[in-house]
Design a protein around this nucleic acid. Structure first.
Lengths: 186, 186
DNA sequence: CTATATTTTCAGTAATTACTGAACGTTCAA
DNA sequence: TTGAACGTTCAGTAATTACTGAAAATATAG
């Protein structure tokens, strides 16, 4: 199978991007290929299209499965395993965010909490703890916000995102209401 | 200089996290050290504290400068360059998001736009373009939203984030207003 | 201008990560 | 039960990335 120049560019680009995100190039390319493919692909087809060894594809798919980014299915009268990327790009985005949270954010928050429980040995430790508190609060705040958004149905999420700048305007509106309410209480 | 166990843990953790984010371990550690340090540090102090070679520290600092994550300053009667991490964690977060956008999101959007302008050679290309359009729209939407938020002053940003779930509630409120407005027009 | 302090560069090397082919394991049709 | 098709594992190797020390470049005090 020969990739069209269009898909080729896309696949190569995502290979590069993957490596900037701690995902290896191969895995990025496999995912990109599945993403633009109209039909589910089996491991041999992937190996052929990307010119990787069969074993490399096997490892790459395993990695993608651990990220819950691919769907495994079987076609009638075919023993081989076929893989595809979920249709809904929002669902993909959420899965990715979710996995990264589990793998990176949660352990970081946990480490920070432990550090904040420790008794500071000196002034430097006290300062370090202050900084860690700031970081902890930032991460927790962003994460909580993300959780909220994350729980929404894809359609609602799309709607929220489409608002863009309007979210900010709602915030301004809320402030004005507050001010009015405040002046009432004087 | 000997790092306290508290700072040690923090520094090592961020080294590991850095490598999962396409930033090398050394650079992550240097940044973590500056982040928890009460005073600006010079390259020798960093090399000493982390047990890296002087040249490694120099390269790491250069990298951090390219990310605009460190501040360079001079102390009176001292020729050496001192580095520190900005105080405001929100500012740090924004800088990071901004740089990543410039380095990864923008080139990706650009690649996608080019791909969408191309004439599809066949049915497979047409499908691939459909997928790329979906991805393009997702990225653009998230980016635009981020831009909006990004322009806010740190204080406003903090306030917005603190709302957390309430943003969602505002959205629901907006829907109800829409419904009411809609029923009016019938 | 010279000597010295400081930072940067870079070629060589070390360490890490990615990839392959061969061997092994599993499934299933006949 | 056998063997062909398919998937996985893993030891060895290739490729990449990280790190160091020495040398060069730059800056500054005297």
């Amino acid at each position: 199978m020969n990739l069209s120049p269009l898909s080729q560019d896309f696949v190569l680009h995502f290979g590069e991007m993957g490596s900037r995100w701690g995902i290896n190039r191969t895995v990025g390319q496999i995912y990109a290929l599945l993403f633009v493919s109209a039909k589910p692909l089996n491991a041999d087809e992937i190996a052929d299209a990307l010119q990787f060894s069969r074993s490399n594809v096997s490892m790459g798919l395993k990695e993608l499965e651990s990220w819950r980014l691919v769907r495994l299915q079987h076609l009638p009268n075919d023993r081989r395993e076929y893989f595809s990327a979920p249709e809904d790009v929002w669902a993909i985005f959420r899965t990715l965010a979710d996995e990264r949270r589990k793998r990176e954010i949660d352990p970081t928050l946990s480490m920070l909490r432990d550090a904040l429980l420790a008794t500071p040995a000196n002034e430097e430790d006290k300062f370090a703890q202050k900084r860690m508190t700031e970081m902890h609060n930032l991460i927790e705040m962003v994460t909580l916000w993300f959780n909220d958004v994350h729980r929404l149905e894809p359609d609602t999420l799309k709607q929220l995102m489409k608002m863009g700048a309007k979210v900010t305007k709602l915030l301004e509106m809320k402030d004005k209401i507050k001010v009015v309410a405040g002046s009432k209480n004087r």
